[in-house]
């Protein structure tokens, strides 16, 4: 049994909230540079350059990449041999979000759904906990902006619609999203499970580093096919027209009910923000 004081969780979550918001991932920067080479639109190239410049300013001046510093989505994998001391784990995560958003000059975006009153500290965090073997704790913070989240959907397809139905739905979703979710986007796809599990898988898929292969060859091929088709739609960087509409398509899949074919599409903006720590 390993003891971890919850204060360590708070400190780590606070740090990850700040880092995720100001330090663009190396995989994203690399993708911007790579896509610039294949981008035919001069405006599209210019937008990719501006996004690289934006990332540099954010890093140098410790400013958030984007003013929408998101709802704090926190994935926490807890080793089953860990014992947390000194308080509630969930409260420690919320406190980490509270502190990170305050100290990092990040925008607080949580509000009451009806009155729209801003809650002022960006809590509650959206927490996904998993118990895993071992005595480590892995924490990933993914600040998720409203613009891209609003373009995301869950749909229960009829099983007869099959893989062609899945492809058609994803392409239509990206096309209808247009310039709203801040392209070039990362398309997170969840297939199977239940209604809520499909959505979770799609969100989890957005965390995979850009440029890595799907370990399942069938899904890898599907990701490549979808990326190619998405980049023929013409939306382009910033939605101003071009070849670079998506940086990547990531799919997570699991078995589903014989009566169902759940499909979730979680659109992630070009910043693809997330940071990870292991305790």
């Amino acid at each position: 049994m390993r003891e971890i004081p919850v204060s360590e969780i708070t400190e780590t979550v606070a740090r990850l909230c700040i880092e995720a918001n100001i330090d663009l991932g190396a995989d994203v920067e690399e993708a911007f540079r790579r896509m610039k080479e294949t981008e035919d639109s001069p405006t599209g190239k210019e937008v990719l350059d501006l996004l690289l410049k934006n990332a540099q300013i954010a890093r140098e001046e410790r400013m958030p990449i984007c003013q929408d510093t998101g709802l704090a989505v926190v994935f926490i994998d807890v080793g089953q041999d860990v014992h947390f001391t000194g308080g509630s784990l969930e409260e420690a995560i919320h406190e980490g979000v509270r502190q990170g958003y305050e100290k990092g000059y990040l925008r607080k975006s949580t509000c009451h759904p009806f009155t729209r009153k801003n809650l002022g500290d960006n809590t509650p965090a959206i927490i996904h906990t998993r118990i895993v073997p071992g005595d480590k704790v892995r924490i990933v913070v993914e600040p998720k902006g409203g613009g891209s989240e609003n373009m995301s959907r869950v749909v229960m397809l009829a099983p007869a619609e099959g893989i062609e139905g899945i492809k058609a739905y994803i392409l239509q979703r990206v096309k209808e999203s247009g310039s709203n979710p801040c392209p070039p986007i990362v398309v997170g796809v969840g297939i199977g499970g239940t209604f809520e599990r499909a959505a979770f898988l799609a969100k989890k898929a957005t965390l995979r580093p850009i440029g890595t292969k799907n370990p399942d060859p069938e899904l890898d091929a599907l990701e490549q096919e979808l990326l190619e088709k998405i980049n023929k739609i013409g939306i382009g960087p910033g939605g101003l027209g071009g070849r670079t509409t998506a940086l990547s398509v990531h799919i997570e899949m699991m078995p589903c009910h014989i009566a169902s074919l759940p499909l979730a599409v979680n659109i992630q903006c070009h910043a693809g923000r997330h940071k990870e720590a292991i305790l």
């Binding site: 937008v47 501006l50 996004l51 410049k53 934006n54 990332a55 300013i57 954010a58 001046e61 400013m63 958030p64 990449i65 984007c66 003013q67 929408d68 613009g147 247009g178 310039s179 709203n180 801040c182 910033g238 939605g239 101003l240 903006c269 070009h270 910043a271």
Partner: peptide, 29 residues
Amino acid sequence: KGNRSQEVIEAIQKHKAIYFGAIGGAGAL
């Protein structure tokens, strides 16, 4: 950033207004 409704596009013409796009996600810049 992002598309406007038909009503807005028509009002832009009628009232001689303009819709500018800024680059979404370039907030630091």
